[in-house]
């Protein structure tokens, strides 16, 4: 279709005015999802946010550093042995307790509590920044993605589960990985 096919009375700035309104409506939707809603989100804070570098004592000498600006579940922040942090539908749960077995036993018991509709990846070994070795696996259901990691040291077992919608799991993967690697045993309170 050449320019001459657009009647003179329908031209504005060299463009076909008849298609301008619908095109602007599409542009408005692009701006809404790509710019406006993310801007609104960034201007709202959680009530109980994780400060940059804030370390949490989960209990039994275990500490961890959740991602900055995530929400801390205020009840679990005061509960020994449990810490829950959230962001955008993602939840990371850290559970600490006494445990004397080996890592594969801990992983096995954790898997028993997972839903049967999940497809689980093989386990792999992982080492925290402090040097503690644990096991990690990921799992999928139709629309959610999760990671499960276990650590055990000196009679203390730690389970970390991250679960949430797949887009968020992918988007925040680096932050969740950094949180898992920040796990430390043997902290004195």
């Amino acid at each position: 279709m050449l320019m001459k096919s657009v009647p003179v009375e329908h031209r504005v700035l060299g463009l076909d005015r008849r298609k301008l309104a619908a095109t602007l409506a599409v542009l408005a939707l692009i701006v809404l999802w790509a710019v406006a809603v993310p801007y609104i989100d960034s201007s709202i804070s959680y009530e109980t946010e994780v400060a940059a570098g804030q370390t949490f004592d989960v209990g039994s000498g275990v500490t961890i550093v959740p991602p900055t600006r995530w929400e801390v579940d205020p009840q679990t922040a005061l509960t020994q042995g449990l810490l829950v942090v959230h962001n955008s539908g993602l939840t990371v749960t850290v559970t600490v307790g006494t445990f004397d077995g080996d890592l594969s036993e801990l992983m096995e018991s954790a898997n028993d509590s997972l839903g049967i509709d999940r497809i689980t990846s093989p386990q792999s070994s992982i080492t925290t920044t402090q040097g503690s070795t644990g096991l990690i696996e990921s799992f999928d259901s139709a629309n959610s993605h999760g990671v499960f990691a276990v650590f055990a040291e000196d009679g203390v077992g730690v389970e970390i589960e991250s679960l949430g919608p797949e887009p968020m799991a992918t988007r925040f993967a680096d932050e969740i990985n950094a949180m898992i690697l920040s796990l430390q045993f043997g902290a004195t309170s």
């Binding site: 993310p38 989100d41 962001n87």
Partner: peptide, 12 residues
């Protein structure tokens, strides 16, 4: 970006 922001806003 739209999904992430909307879920985050709901969560907040």
């Amino acid at each position: 970006p739209g999904n992430a922001a909307m879920l985050s806003i709901m969560s907040k």
